[in-house]
């Protein structure tokens, strides 16, 4: 019977958080911006069918970055929750806050339970109301934290670069046209160059409080989008993002595994924690060809400071 190694809770959570963060940062950004008549969502998304922004209920929309299968599951659960509540009570009793809470509980429980892989997703739940002051944007992270955002918010990809671009130019109560232009310019902005994103590669949707129907969500068609954006010059295609090519693949940041970190197994190789013959911690013993080179620290967490043996 092998002895489990002690991993401090801080280290365990940090590893899980790093894992989730890596997955989220690989995708492209989603931007949400409040404007005078509602809330706008924009994302660069080459797929016309796999949406990142969707309708949940009358006044509530959902946007996500990260692993598609995971946030799609959450989206469907949200639609079911909202429709169930709206049917059992009334349409007005479906609120963004209730939905954000349900998501937060779900993500938080999964993140802190040892048995499950944390979700590599980040979500926006936005609710439009009768006046801009009462609009709500909730941001939910992989570990179930909820933040109430004001004005604008960015998640996924190089979110800090995009967010600072918007922060410099954003003003409250802007028109739809100006926020569409701002959001799309911000998505094409990076630290070294600005790109013009092709209209067909943009996914833009709005929660429009001026719509006469009870359902306020609508997608902005490419034709309407190019009219809103005006003349922008020739578009530059983006280089392929990792999320475009690895359908269902294991998340990998492309770097070799760090043998000192037993949770870094993205390449599929699991560093042996102990010598299979002696049962001792693997300190450069019979190394397999892809195993850690001899002489390195044993792949034990937490690394060096503590005793080399199992701390019990």
């Amino acid at each position: 019977m092998s002895m489990p190694f002690y991993v401090s809770p801080e280290q365990l959570m940090k590893d899980r958080a790093d894992f989730a963060r890596k997955g989220i940062a690989r995708g492209r950004s989603v931007v949400t911006v409040q404007y005078a008549e509602g809330i706008l969502f924009a994302s660069e998304n080459p797929s016309q069918a796999l949406h990142k922004v969707s309708e949940i209920y009358d006044r509530i929309a959902f946007a996500a970055v990260g692993r598609y299968n995971e946030f799609e599951n959450l989206r469907i659960a949200g639609v079911r929750l909202a429709d169930m509540r709206g049917y059992a009570y009334d349409r007005r009793d479906v609120t963004g806050r209730g939905l954000a809470n349900a998501y937060a509980q779900t993500l938080g429980t999964i993140f802190s339970s040892g048995g499950e892989k944390p979700y590599e997703v980040e979500l926006f739940v936005a609710e439009v109301s009768d006046s801009a002051a009462d609009d709500q944007i909730y941001r939910l992270t992989y570990d179930g934290q909820v933040a109430d955002e004001q004005g604008f918010a960015v998640m996924g990809g190089a979110s800090d670069v995009v967010a600072s671009y918007i922060e410099e130019r954003y003003s409250e109560g802007a028109s739809l046209e100006s926020v569409v232009r701002l959001a799309v310019a911000a998505l094409g902005h990076s630290s070294d160059a600005d790109r013009v994103i092709d209209v067909d590669h943009l996914e833009v949707a709005i929660l429009d409080r001026t719509r006469s129907q009870p359902r306020k969500f609508s997608r902005v068609s490419p034709a309407r989008l190019s009219a809103l954006l005006g003349e922008r010059g020739p578009s530059t295609p983006d280089e392929l993002a990792p999320e475009d090519t690895q359908a269902g693949g294991a998340p990998s940041d492309g770097t070799p595994d760090d043998p000192a970190d037993p949770t870094d197994q993205a390449s599929g190789h699991v560093a042996p924690l102990e010598d299979p013959v002696t049962g001792e911690p693997n300190g450069g013993g019979p190394a397999t060809d892809s195993g850690p080179p001899s002489g390195q620290e044993p792949p034990v967490a937490p690394p060096p400071s503590g005793p080399t043996g199992p701390a019990l």
């Binding site: 349900a102 429980t109 999964i110």
Partner: peptide, 12 residues
């Protein structure tokens, strides 16, 4: 006691 969304909600 599980506060998360029921598994049936997450089932595709």
């Amino acid at each position: 006691n599980d506060p998360r969304l029921p598994a049936s909600y997450l089932q595709p």
